[in-house]
Nucleic acid binder design. Structure first.
Lengths: 332, 332
DNA sequence: CTGTTAGCGCATTCAC
DNA sequence: GTGAATGCGCTAACAG
């Protein structure tokens, strides 16, 4: 086997053992279970190792133990502002346990997602799937190989953390009603999205409860242009306010309204979901805030727990949302 | 050694060899160098392996070859909209070579960055450091262990890809001058940022060349609130336009202006940098576009090249920027 | 508390 | 073209 000569070849455990006049096992213990050997020897070895620039070879350790201290995280699209905070949260939690995280981008594409899963396989102890595009069957199959935790995807038997927009959307409707709105529209996102179904249903329940007029306009994509394109339909419905599937669409709606000289919030109110850009726009967007960072943390936390004790109770962790009122909503 | 019993234990190369009636070497070759064995045997073995659900153990292979097909990518802050497209680009390129990428978040913190580097070490063949907060010495030291490629950081001898804002910023100034502006301000970002220094210098050169009045206001942080807080200083300077270190600050400036009832672009023009949010706001932000996705791709591409042929010529790859004109700039 | 022994799963010299 | 032997670096039983 040809080893590319490293500029500064790393010492092996044997070299440290020789230099310290002990066996390799002792050196090994000095790093993995220091409390199992003499305090003095442990210190001496670690010090010596430090001087020699020795560090345990992660790969060799992984081969021997079957544990590599890595997890995988697959998201549909890193560039969608919804995900970065979630990734961040996952990182933070992984960090605390000294785990490294592989990041994968599925491009909203099931086969790409499966490919990543395959590629990660054998290098990760578990995987977090965010807004997975895989079928239930594929997910269940993947979970048979190694622990899987889902975010915003509800598959029975697979640990999952769900951001529940119900409360936030209800608050949004209540907020608009309190401001005097009597005809609201929900701008729907991707039809196969779990989050979208959930928000739409919460919307329906809330408007029915309030006994006001309401309608739904359907867009296929969740982005600025898509939101902008819905404005004619929204205005045609005679609504005075819109709750949008996400903030990007909300921005699009605002753009479309501005083009038609409909002032926000003077003549029309707009509410987004996820609160990913709220504070950085003008006027600042009222939005249903999603605890995405928390979702990332929780998912990884659950995954790591599962790696510890191999319990397999059915976890379904729900995170609540709330309305963050800013400047795009006003009295009718 | 206690191996946690996998639900569906993966077959090893030996089992496949036994089942196929060949030696382990042959099976190994069937996967790593199929052309080195009989076409027929290779096919037969691969087929059998597929049936048995065999896949080469990544870790064992890595231990033996010293190559694990992973790279590390460390960014200051995943949540900063500048980075996701870059991450995306890096992923795309890694994907093409069947590499997995470890993502790390340094929190703009040098010691956290060093810690990640350490944690990745031994599992990655190379690392891409984006807007590194490490000292030159630390970077050089890291590069002695394994290949390192820098993005937006200029250290002699280390391969680097730099987004050169000079052209874009010059265009921005020219654009404003053409619109009749005669007093412009540059809203400076983090003082130790390479990008900021570069933009500020390009600004100085351009305004001097145009012979117009100009000034610089200094902010320490690059975010919305920081931009918003600069508005009084900007207006006090008597400027009619501002070029901001990045889009987030530009948004902040727009927010601050709106609060003071200064209409954009009617009475004041605003230009951002990086073009990370331009199209999703209203009015749409004029911005100096940074090819961040391309930067990510190029960095990984250079890294992978370097892993192939161990050449070590000094690469300094420059990516140009250009002004994207939208609706926040207008005649004075 | 420490050393000895035996793999983890694979890639790779050598022979044949 | 194929098989036998050896080692990658480390950990974990088992003795002592």
């Amino acid at each position: 086997m040809v080893q590319k000569p490293p500029s500064r070849s790393a010492p092996t455990i044997s070299q440290v053992a020789a230099a310290a006049g002990v066996s390799r096992s002792t050196v090994s213990r000095a790093f993995s279970r220091p409390e199992a050997i003499g305090q003095a020897t442990a210190d001496r070895i670690r010090e010596l190792a430090r001087e020699m620039g020795y560090a345990p070879n992660h790969t060799a350790r992984a081969l021997s133990t079957g544990r590599h201290g890595n997890i995988g995280l697959i998201v549909p699209d890193v560039s969608n502002p919804f995900f970065p905070p979630l990734i961040r949260g996952a990182q933070v939690e992984a960090d605390r346990a000294d785990f490294c995280v592989f990041l994968g981008n599925s491009d909203e594409n099931p086969s790409q997602e499966a490919k990543l899963l395959e590629r990660f396989s054998g290098q990760v102890e578990g995987v977090v799937l965010v807004s997975s595009r895989l079928t239930d069957e594929q997910i269940i199959e993947a979970a048979q190989i190694r622990p899987v935790v889902l975010v915003n995807r509800d598959v029975e038997g697979i640990p999952r953390v769900l951001i529940d927009s119900s409360i936030g959307v209800s608050e949004a409707v209540a907020h608009l009603v309190a401001l005097g709105h009597r005809n609201i529209v929900y701008v729907s996102g991707p039809s196969k999205s779990w989050s979208n179904r959930q928000r739409r249903n919460a919307f329906k329940r809330a408007v029915k409860l309030a006994g006001i007029e309401a309608s739904i306009v359907y867009a296929d994509m969740a982005n600025y242009d898509s939101g902008r394109a819905q404005v004619p339909k929204i205005l045609a419905a005679g609504a005075s306010a819109a709750i949008c599937f996400d903030d990007l669409m909300a921005q699009g709606v605002m753009g479309g309204l501005a083009e038609r000289d409909v002032p926000v919030p003077a003549r029309f109110s707009v509410i987004g979901c996820d609160d990913v850009i709220g504070a950085t726009t003008y006027p600042a967007l009222t939005s249903v805030s999603s605890p995405t960072l928390q979702a990332g943390r929780t998912a990884v936390s659950i995954l790591l727990d599962r790696l510890e004790d191999n319990t397999s109770q059915d976890i379904r962790y729900t995170l609540d949302t709330r309305l963050v009122t800013r400047q795009t909503t006003g009295p009718v």
